[in-house]
Amino acid sequence: MSYTFQFGEVLRYWPLLVQGAINTLVFSVIAMVAGLAIGVVGASCRISSSRVLRAIAGAYVEVVRNTPLLVQLFLFYFGLPALGLRLSTSQAAILALTFNTGAYSTEIVRAGIESIHRSQIEASTSLGISRLQTFLHVVLPQGLERVYPALASQFVLMMLASSVVSAIGAEELTAYGNRIQSENFRAMEVFFVCAAVYLGLTYLMRVLLAAVAYVAFPRRRALGSV
Rank of each mutant, 00 (worst) to 15 (best):
A96R: 06
G102E: 09
I94D: 06
V147C: 04
Q142G: 03
L127K: 07
L95G: 04
A103G: 08
I129P: 02
S88T: 15
V138N: 10
R146D: 05
E171V: 13
Y104C: 03
F74K: 05
H137N: 12
S162V: 05
V109R: 04
M158R: 13
L136M: 07
Q154I: 04
L85D: 00
I180M: 10
Q120N: 05
V64P: 03
Y176D: 02
L83F: 14
S105H: 14
T98M: 00
L97R: 12
A161G: 13
R86V: 11
A82W: 14
S163E: 02
G169A: 08
T98S: 06
Q91K: 01
T67A: 08
N178E: 12
S162Y: 10
A92N: 11
V156M: 07
I180T: 11
S119K: 05
A150C: 08
Q72V: 12
L83P: 01
L173T: 12
I180S: 06
V165G: 11
G128A: 05
A175R: 15
T134F: 01
S119G: 12
I121V: 12
H117M: 03
Q91H: 12
E172R: 15
V64W: 00
S119H: 08
F99H: 12
S115I: 09
L127I: 03
G177W: 00
V64S: 03
Q154R: 14
L85A: 15
E171C: 07
A96W: 05
L136G: 02
S162R: 12
L157N: 15
E62M: 06
A96G: 07
P68T: 15
F185W: 13
E114Q: 15
L144I: 00
P141A: 00
A93L: 02
A82K: 15
V64G: 09
V165Y: 01
Q120K: 06
R65H: 03
L144S: 09
S126Y: 04
Q120M: 05
T67D: 01
S162A: 15
R131Q: 12
L127A: 08
E172D: 08
A150S: 14
L132W: 14
S90E: 13
Q154G: 08
Q133I: 00
L132S: 13
L70V: 15
F135R: 06
G112L: 09
L73P: 04
L132N: 02
V138F: 03
S163Y: 08
G128C: 03
N184L: 01
E107C: 01
M158T: 14
L160G: 04
T106I: 09
S166D: 07
E62V: 00
V139D: 04
H117Y: 02
R179I: 10
R65C: 02
A167W: 10
L80R: 12
S90Y: 13
V61N: 10
A123Q: 02
V138W: 10
G79M: 07
S126Q: 06
F74G: 10
P149Q: 04
Y104Q: 09
E172I: 00
I113Q: 08
L73S: 11
G112T: 02
V164D: 06
